[in-house]
Amino acid sequence: MKIITGLGFILIFIGIWAMLTRKNMIKIVIGFSLIDTGIHIIMVSIGYIKGRTAPILNSAVDKARALTEVVDPVPSVLVLTAIVIGLAVTALLLVYVVKLYKYKKSMNIDDYGELKW
């Protein structure tokens, strides 16, 4: 699981790099989305326990011994919440991109210098 956690941090790294260096606004939104995915992977890998199954107590899992047979359900819950919020925020960012493109007909973030100091 150490490898999976490391891969999650690599995804966050790529996302931050994309947000800082890319000029195209769609690519900046993609960088945000990559950070989101990396955080989800890290959270899931924290809750994973080797050799166990999903936290659903159907016929495959003995209910009396469930404590030693299922993975941690709490990180899964947090990731489920985070995915929905990430989806909403990504949609909002894309709408900002659409609005900015209508305003100046440019995708380059350098053309929008109003917030510079």
């Binding site: 699981m1 150490k2 956690t5 809750g47 994973y48 326990i49 080797k50 404590l67 030693t68 941690d72």
Partner: peptide, 10 residues
């Protein structure tokens, strides 16, 4: 990453 210990129980 280097101090990450995989969990063994809930």
């Amino acid at each position: 990453i280097s101090d990450f210990i995989p969990s063994h129980e809930l």
